[in-house]
Design a binder for these strands. Structure first.
Lengths: 202, 202
DNA sequence: CCTACCGATCGGTAGG
DNA sequence: CCTACCGATCGGTAGG
């Protein structure tokens, strides 16, 4: 019980560290020092650095679902929910849910050229996310909110690209208009596929 | 003269290594080993790891300009050149100009949460790139190829997002339709801002 | 451009 | 969860 709580607090810190320094830049020594515990004591919770990385990915996924994705499911299915996901994503960038910017964008670009179990876990997480986005689009089609010729896989690709682009412009470039641009771009795209009577995004 | 050649060959290797392992993951020891030279011999060319990282960013920028950007300038200014930049970018992803995927996307997401001279150099490089993209869009407006209400900063944001999204879908997810999706998304967006008579992207 | 070396830190282990 | 330790590798230096 206590072990599980300790493990969870280690992972929250690990996720924050990895979002700024990367999953490889995350080291057991610094993580232990920040938590004021011994390296070996922390290490005992995971058994290897790779297991720590995999557990951090899972913890980041849970944080993302709790803070960003699940709240959007409160909106009614169809266009409103798709809007809620988009607005929630931009808010996620603004709020800095991960201190070093989007954990998943960072992990994706860190591991896109390297094989191994960590990469595989990132790919699986991103496949699930893109799948969830496609499903929200498909629901909006089924509800008759989007035109029937909309390609969910294509639109999900576009929205995800704009999300990552917003993270890039906001966190790296410090573009003060980053979120306004992303919102405008999403608005343009969604208006292009919405059926009449559904025109506003913001 | 010979020193400059050695330095250049070190940097080409450094850029390749950094594109897969990151600019922090790039180590002097492994780089020296791959080049069959001593660590200190290599080190003498740069003086510090940070200088090596800065030189690698500059070398990557030169490779990008030579392989991707300059060829697109061969197309006539306006819509054709904007198309050429877009097509060149997707081809750049497909060809794997950097073995670990786009060097700049990786570096951007690696350093977006960390201060310092390396981050500053990445920001400056990306600002220049986005500025060049905006300029190409502005030229297309000036030539009368794009509608006069087009916002170059917004369209540059959108195109760059799709470029990075294509890199993500292709290199991380291994999505076989990644480039086709990116091409379709770019086509949709450019057709939306093109003046009549300019409708084809591919 | 080399050999030889430095202190610090890495992931990980032994033993409790 | 700790102390005490391991070999390997890190960035960097001395001296040539």
């Amino acid at each position: 019980m206590k072990g599980a709580r300790t493990r969870q607090s280690i992972l929250e810190r690990a996720v924050d560290l990895a979002s700024t320094d990367g999953l490889e830049g995350l080291t057991i020594g610094r993580l232990a020092e920040e938590l004021s515990m011994s390296k070996s004591g922390l290490f005992a919770h995971f058994g290897s650095k790779e297991e720590l990385q995999l557990a951090a990915i899972e913890a980041a996924r849970e944080r993302y679902i709790t803070e960003v994705f699940r709240p959007a499911l409160g909106a009614e299915r169809g266009y409103p929910r798709l809007q809620a996901i988009c607005r929630g994503w931009l808010d996620y960038v603004r709020r800095g849910v991960f201190p070093g910017g989007c954990f998943f964008a960072a992990a994706s670009f860190e591991f896109d050229g390297r094989p191994g179990p960590v990469r595989d876990a990132i790919v699986a997480t991103m496949d699930t996310w893109i799948g969830a986005l496609e499903k929200a689009i498909l629901m909006a089609k089924d509800e008759g909110h989007l035109r029937s010729d909309v390609d969910p896989a294509l639109l999900a690709f576009e929205l995800n690209s704009l999300f990552f682009g917003a993270n890039f412009a906001f966190h790296l470039r410090g573009d003060q208009q980053a979120l306004a641009k992303a919102e405008a771009a999403i608005d343009i795209r969604l208006r292009g596929v919405a059926k009449k009577g559904r025109r506003k995004v913001a």
